[in-house]
Design a protein around this nucleic acid. Structure first.
Lengths: 215, 215
DNA sequence: GCTAAACGGGGAGACGGTCCCCGGTTATTT
DNA sequence: AAATAACCGGGGACCGTCTCCCCGTTTAGC
């Protein structure tokens, strides 16, 4: 903690500039390919898309899960950012919620779900931290709309996020771009169903954050 | 065409009873496993679940696509049946639509989409026949609700079916049963958004059957 | 310009899915 | 009930694919 340019204790001499750049390009490429082709795309393909050799991928990430985790955290951060922006809006509370949902869908929150599977540490520190940020912010956005009497009160955080994730999932298999044509229509329809007053009585109870965690 | 017991021209001496039974069990097991594990489950696993040897699977279906096609047709038939029942209901038109949606979701129409990929003949006679039946019936159910002024008129067949398929997709990876807990809640929310009068203006135009076909 | 870190491509190794083979079993026919 | 032919089941060979290491070459940083 002496100088800003050499903060870490020796032994970590600071990575090279191009190394950092490559790492970032890998994460970006991985996010795109996970969304398009699913969570099982060969790492070699990701490397090619990123414009690097396959060895560079395996150097930066000890195993597939490490890469997946980084991608998931990245998407969560973007989602949290979208929620924060929605919170900053001072106008219509439900309008802010709507805007958040459409932006989050474009970030492909969807891609996360298929990956949280099998050998994957859901309790990794980085993950819980990112998750908590998102939950906190989205919950606030929803609460404000609820207070304003615009959001029906029998729905929870989990209802919103799961439905958005499901609706924004690509049709699996192809990177068919047509899904985007439908996606925002269907999100809007779902949002219309979310408005107060409720037009029906829902089965079960509101899905909370805790429900998702242990699911 | 002489007697009913020997209708086929010779050379097809009629399959044995247990052979038919096995074929049926394979299709059932395949539907379950496709829904739970995705369209790439090993055929050997399907055979085990069906309680038959793997050779029996390969004997009955020349290749994977043939099995997938049979499963898809089977699900479509069930869906068409659900739609027909909804049409037969004489009460509330929108209520019939709701009931159809919830039943169709339980049939896992969802499982179809991930399979319509890569090497798969979308124009196989059996498929188009089943598809046309479903389209016809569902369109009628929707039209009746629309006429009754209960269904917003800026949505089409494609909007309904794609959204239902997406919402009823299992979270991919695990056969986590919790999804069923959410599923019907989210379907109901979506249906609420479908009701007239429209609570917002949708982006794009109504998704028709033709849109889906060439997508 | 020198040094060491980082890169890239090729290929070995391993895993998993598909499909065939053949001895045993079961449904049908007379 | 016996004969017969279709059908079944499990084991294993073949093949494509993904992972990951190796090593000669390049490039950033001083």
């Amino acid at each position: 903690m002496q100088t800003a340019t050499a903060p870490a204790q020796r032994k970590v001499p600071r990575p090279r500039a191009d190394a950092l750049r490559n790492r970032e390009r890998i994460v970006t490429a991985a996010r795109e390919m996970f969304v398009e082709l699913g969570p099982e795309v060969p790492l070699d393909d990701i490397a090619r898309r990123a414009g690097v050799g396959n060895a560079t991928v395996y150097r930066n990430f000890p195993d597939r899960d490490a890469l997946v985790r980084e991608v998931v955290c990245s998407v969560m951060d973007r989602t949290a950012h979208a929620a924060a922006q929605a919170l900053a809006e001072t106008g219509d509370a439900f309008g802010a919620l709507e805007r958040f949902v459409h932006v989050a869908a474009d970030e492909r929150v969807s891609a996360l779900c298929p990956m949280v599977t099998s050998t994957f540490d859901k309790d990794h520190p980085d993950l819980v931290a990112a998750r908590m940020r998102v939950e906190q912010l989205v919950e606030e956005v929803m609460e404000r709309a609820r207070q304003a009497g615009q959001l029906r009160d029998d729905v929870g955080y989990g209802d919103l996020m799961v439905a958005v994730a499901q609706l924004s999932r690509p049709p699996a298999g192809t990177a068919c771009p047509s899904v985007d044509r439908f996606l925002h229509r269907h999100l809007q329809l779902f949002l219309d169903g979310l408005r107060a007053p409720a037009r029906s009585v829902l089965p079960g109870t509101a899905v909370t954050m805790e429900d998702l965690r242990q699911a």
